[in-house]
Structures are given as C-alpha cells and as structure tokens.
C-alpha cells in the first residue's frame, strides 16, 4: 500500500513537472522510464545468429550464446560465447558493465585455455567483423548518455542521446521509443564523429516476456557509408534460468568456452 502511495505521488510529481520541463529533462525522463519498464528481468539466456552481409551480398554467419544477469546498483553482467565460426568456437567474454567509468572485461581463448583481462576502451571497434560496434552491444545504462527530447511522431518518442564517453565512435544517436509498448526501442540512428549518418538499427519481431519485458527477435543494422548490413536473429529467449553471480565468474567463463 505504502508503495502505491509513493508511486502515485511520483506520478503526480512527474505530471506537474511536464509543464515546465526542458527537452533535456524530458529526454532523460524517457530514458529512465524505458530503463524502469524493463527492470526486474533478473537474468536471461538467449541464442543469437549473426548474419554479416557485404555490399556484394556475400554472407557470413556466427552463432553466439549470451547470458545476462541484471544488476540494479551497477551495470549488468554478461557472458558471450561463440559457437561458430568453428575456429573461434569457445572464445568467450565476461563483462561487468559499470554505470560510471570503464567496464571490466575478460576474454577466454580456448585453444590455450587462457583468460586475459582486456581493455574495454575500444568501444567503437567492430564486433567480430560485423556492423555492430562493441558499444552497440553493451548494456544501455542511463548514465552513459546526455539526453534531449526531439519530437513525438506517431506514438514514437524520439530522443537524441550524446555519449558521455569521449571514446565512443558517435557524436549522437537518435533513439525512437515506443511509448505504448513499455518504451521499447524501435529504431536507432547513429551519427559518426563528423555528425554524418553512419548506421541505422531497426528492431523487429518484438515479443513480450513475463508480461513485461519486450525483446526483439530480429535486429538489422545497416551501415549507410559502407553499404554493409548485419542481422541479429534471437532465439530461445529464456527468462527462467535463474542465474546468479556465481555464473559470471572467471571459472564460469572457462566453463562456457570449454
């Protein structure tokens, strides 16, 4: 009951704030609302297929497993492991995202069984030759951007986001949130450091899990400058795995890689 009163008070508070709100405040508010809407997923496991297509239409595929553990105080923990291409099978990374400061990241090389702490400062580089940069795949924490609300168009709230980290490859992103569907992201446009449109990411085939969490089954990243495209296909979303901190250790990293 107490909780409801507080929620109500907060709602009233935010409604009255809207009147005097600047675009910056509204942008931040939307990002927080989107973050809040997805809070409480706990942990999940999902399989990904990454399809890389160059401008001549040649295709290359990677199969990846991803495990995520939600953290409230700090950024999420994540394990990513490759199943194909065969020569990198078992190569895996363990990442502890931080809301402020650089992430902690370890790489496992299965051929020599070596775990290597790696620098997380390479945010803008391509992930496994794809059109996704490392920063596009890391968990979206509210603290990582400065926000500015742009406009509302057909139920979509468009917010400009400027990365706080100077090592980001982007000057800004334009993110379209779907207000009526739990603030899920429908589209992101990435502008490079010269402020020219670099890439567009479109989220498709959304499904709702646990009556709350929206996850897209297909993401398509198109690079407008190179003509290349990467598609991510998600399958076997499992929100019921009940992972714990123990499943995100160096030992767990070695186990997932074999």
């Amino acid at each position: 009951m107490m909780k409801r009163i507080i929620v109500f008070a907060l709602l009233v508070g935010s409604v009255s704030m809207v009147i005097a709100q600047s675009p910056e405040e509204k942008g931040l508010e939307i990002a927080k609302a989107a973050n809040k809407a997805d809070e409480g997923f706990g942990s999940l496991e999902v399989n990904l297929k990454m399809i890389l297509k160059n401008k001549n239409g040649q295709v290359s595929e990677r199969e990846i497993t991803n495990k995520i553990l939600e953290q409230i105080e700090d950024g999420d923990k994540s394990l990513v492991a490759f199943n194909t291409p065969r020569d990198v099978k078992g190569t895996a990374t363990l990442t502890f995202t931080h809301k402020v400061g650089s992430d902690d990241q370890w790489l496992y090389l299965p051929s020599i069984k070596r775990v290597k702490r790696i620098s997380s400062s390479n945010k803008s580089g391509p992930f496994m030759g794809s059109e996704f940069a490392f920063e596009d795949l890391s968990s979206d924490e509210v603290e990582k951007y400065v926000y500015k609300f742009v406009e509302e168009k057909e139920g979509l709230l468009i917010v400009e986001q400027d990365p706080v980290d100077p090592k980001s490859g982007y000057a800004r992103r334009l993110v379209s949130y779907n207000k009526n569907k739990g603030y899920r992201v429908e589209k992101i446009e990435f502008y490079d450091r010269k402020n020219e449109l670099l890439k567009t990411l479109v989220h498709k085939d959304y499904k709702q899990y646990k009556n709350k969490h929206w996850r897209s089954g297909t993401m398509v990243m198109t690079n407008h400058q190179s003509g290349k495209e990467t598609t991510l296909l998600f399958s076997d979303y499992n929100f019921g795995v009940e992972l714990a901190d123990e499943d995100f250790t160096e030992n767990a990293l070695k186990r997932i890689g074999g």
């Binding site: 390479n122 803008s124 580089g125 030759g129 490859g169 490079d192």
Partner: peptide, 12 residues
Amino acid sequence: YTFSNIKSSGLD
C-alpha cells in the same frame, strides 16, 4: 598498448 579502430577502419 593498443591503438584501436584507427580512423574508424576497424584496424587495431
């Protein structure tokens, strides 16, 4: 020391 993603080419 690594110079990463040199001139946005992906080269490290």
